[in-house]
C-alpha cells in the first residue's frame, strides 16, 4: 500500500471548531465504503510524526468529504489547508460496514460523530428504513443537519442544554425508537461515554459503534490500537473495526 496524493478542493469551518474538507481522488471515491477511514499526514516531514485517522464523511462523484474537530496540532494543520494544497493519504483503511437490506436502521451521532454516519445513511436509505439521531451540547454543535435532511430520512435532534430538539442525551432518542425483536440495527459514532451508554441501554437490537480511539499505524502492523474484548484480550480495531459490535467490547 502506497500513500496517495490528492488536491484539496474546499475547506471551511462549518461549526465552531469543526472543519469540512473536500478533496478530489477518483480512485478513493470509488473505493471508499461506509466505515472506511483514511490516515492523513498532517504535514510534510517527521513532526507531527503520526498520521491522523479520519472517517470518510461523504462521497460525491470524484470528491470525498472529511468533517473533523481540531483538538490538537495535527488536525490544526489539516484545518489550515487551502484549495489546491495536497493531502497525503493512506487508505481506505478498516473494514467497511456490511450493508443490511430491508431493516430499520437507527443512526446515532454525538457531536462530530455525525460525520461517518452521513455516507452510511446515503448508502443505506434505498434498501432500508433509516432514522437518524444527532446530539450535541448545544444547537450550534449540531452538524450536517441539512445534508441529512436532504436524504429525506427521519431526523431527530438532542442537545444537553435543550436549545434544539430533545433536552438530554441523544441516546434517549435511540432507546425510545428501539423495538426489540424486530431485527433493528443501530450504528453509533461519538464519544466513548455515548457508546457505553448505548451498549448499556439498547436491548433487543444489534448495536455497532464507530470507534475513534488512539491508533499507531492504522494498517495492522503495530498493535497500538486496542479495545478490551468481552471475555479477555483486545480487539485490534484498525483491522477488526473501526466499526465494532458494542456487545463484543468492554466499555
Amino acid at each position: 500500500m502506497k500513500s496517495l496524493r490528492a488536491p484539496v478542493v474546499a475547506n471551511a469551518e462549518v461549526a465552531p471548531g469543526i472543519w469540512s474538507l473536500w478533496f478530489e481522488h477518483p480512485g478513493l471515491a470509488r473505493a471508499c465504503r461506509p466505515g472506511h477511514f483514511l490516515n492523513l499526514k498532517p504535514g510534510p516531514g517527521p513532526d507531527p510524526l503520526l498520521r491522523r485517522p479520519l472517517s470518510v464523511c461523504d462521497v460525491e462523484r470524484d470528491r470525498l468529504r472529511l468533517v473533523f474537530r481540531a483538538p490538537g496540532r495535527g488536525t490544526a494543520l489539516l484545518a489550515q489547508l487551502r484549495p489546491g494544497d495536497e493531502l497525503d493519504i493512506l487508505g481506505p483503511l478498516g473494514r467497511p460496514v456490511r450493508l443490511p437490506k430491508r431493516r430499520t436502521v437507527l443512526l446515532c451521532g454525538g457531536g462530530v460523530g455525525a460525520a461517518p454516519l452521513l455516507l452510511l445513511a446515503r448508502r443505506l436509505r434505498d434498501e432500508n428504513r433509516v432514522k437518524v439521531f444527532l446530539g450535541a451540547r448545544a444547537a450550534e454543535g449540531l452538524i450536517l443537519t441539512r445534508e441529512f435532511s436532504r436524504l429525506r430520512l427521519e431526523v431527530g435532534f438532542a442537545t444537553d442544554d435543550g436549545s434544539h430538539g430533545h433536552r438530554g442525551p441523544v441516546t434517549d432518542l435511540v432507546v425510545k425508537n428501539v423495538h426489540p425483536g424486530t431485527g433493528q440495527l443501530v450504528y453509533a459514532c461519538g464519544p466513548l461515554a455515548m457508546l457505553a451508554d448505548l451498549a448499556r441501554r439498547v436491548k433487543g437490537a444489534e448495536a455497532w459503534g464507530f470507534f475513534e480511539e488512539r491508533m499507531g499505524c492504522g494498517t495492522g502492523i503495530c498493535y497500538c490500537c486496542a479495545l478490551p474484548r468481552k471475555g479477555g484480550g483486545y480487539t485490534r480495531f484498525c483491522q477488526e473495526g473501526p466499526v465494532v459490535r458494542l456487545d463484543e467490547v468492554e466499555l
Binding site: P48, R214, G216, C224, L227
Partner: peptide, 19 residues
C-alpha cells in the same frame, strides 16, 4: 493479551508505545 489502551503517545519527533 498485551496492555490496556491507550498504547501509543506521540511527542515531537517520536512516540511512546506500551503494547
Amino acid at each position: 493479551a498485551g496492555n490496556p489502551g491507550p498504547r501509543i503517545f506521540e511527542f515531537p519527533g517520536g512516540i511512546l508505545n506500551s503494547v
